[in-house]
Computed example of a mutant assay.
Amino acid sequence: MIFDSLDVSYGNMWGSQQGTTHPDPMPRAVAARRHAAGMEYAVLLSVQERPLALVEYWPRRMWRMYLFDDRSWRMQMIDLKPHSAGMLLAHRNTRWQFSNEQEHASWNWDVQETTTVSADGQVEVSSEFGGPLGALHALAAGSSGARVRRFVTAVESFLCSVPEFGDWQVFAPFLAQQGHESARSVVLRDVSVDEGSGPLRATGIDQLFSPGACDTPDGPAAVDLVNAGLLRITSGQLAVSDPGWIGETPRTVGTPMLP
């Protein structure tokens, strides 16, 4: 895909979250203040509601970028750190390969390749294999199946400029690593993203409440709908959380208050 514009929205950091909901949104002005104070925030770069990159700003002027492919799968993670005056070094670049959508959803990768670059151009590429592919490589290698190669190259090819706040064109060349080619000039457009919307909003909700047979990571199952009655919400706020993580701060949404 060739793009000549990017939609830009701001929110809280994602960390290692692999879900498909948009990060908690925040106004551009709030993100700018956090940037000036050296506090973390996230920038989502997308095209026509298709995510291309999520860029996280970390304390101590560190950056992390997640890249998405044409299926909106998170396929790559790049860590950048200060290198020299006004420059960042992409010192760690991790790519994943998945055999199918179900494996991606459960984060069971077939191959994880990590490229590590030192400040003087020392490069190490480590490939790890998981699942049946990992077993085959382990059998052939007589070990864990991981492979490592090392070489020296010019570090300049791993550098990019430190962006000023809002200068996200700096990261556009990285998008080519997932097949997203930028035009000679790229226009940035700030977009306002509401809770539960945007390019990574949750999809397939109706399928969760459709009776009948379905496939799950644990095998075939059947969905049977049961009327649980009326739910009274006197606070006007509904907390949504995975039951396994109920101790974490849940996401809350407002509900209509009936007279």
Rank of each mutant, 00 (worst) to 15 (best):
S5R: 15
S5A: 06
L6S: 07
S9T: 11
M13Y: 03
W14F: 12
T20E: 08
T21F: 00
H22N: 12
M26C: 09
A29S: 01
A29P: 11
A31E: 07
A32T: 02
A36E: 12
A37P: 00
M39F: 08
Y41W: 08
Y41I: 04
Y41F: 14
A42I: 02
V43Q: 02
V47S: 05
V47F: 13
L52K: 03
L54G: 14
L54N: 10
V55P: 06
E56N: 02
E56C: 05
R60H: 09
R60P: 09
R61Y: 07
R64Y: 04
R64F: 01
M65Y: 10
M65K: 01
Y66T: 14
L67Y: 03
D70A: 11
R71P: 01
S72F: 08
M75F: 07
Q76P: 04
M77W: 08
L80Y: 14
L88K: 04
L89G: 09
H91A: 00
R92K: 11
W96G: 01
Q97D: 00
Q97M: 01
Q97T: 09
F98E: 03
E101Y: 11
Q102G: 13
W107K: 10
W109N: 12
D110F: 05
V111I: 15
V111S: 02
Q112S: 13
T114Y: 08
V117A: 11
A119H: 00
E124V: 14
E124M: 09
S126E: 15
F129M: 10
F129K: 04
G131F: 10
G131P: 06
G131M: 11
P132M: 05
L133P: 01
L133S: 06
G134K: 01
A135H: 02
A138M: 10
L139F: 02
A141L: 07
S143L: 07
S144L: 09
S144A: 12
G145S: 03
R147S: 06
V155I: 07
S157P: 01
P163T: 11
E164T: 04
F165D: 13
W168A: 03
A172D: 07
F174Y: 07
L175T: 15
A176W: 10
Q178W: 00
E181Q: 15
S185W: 02
S185Y: 02
E195L: 11
G196L: 11
T203A: 11
G204M: 13
D206R: 14
D206K: 05
G212R: 09
G212A: 13
D218L: 13
G219C: 15
A221Y: 06
A221W: 03
A222C: 12
V223F: 08
V223M: 08
D224M: 10
V226F: 07
N227E: 15
A228T: 15
R232Q: 14
I233G: 05
I233T: 05
T234A: 12
Q237V: 11
A239V: 02
V240K: 02
V240W: 06
V240C: 07
S241T: 13
P243I: 02
I246G: 09
I246L: 09
V253T: 05
M257P: 03
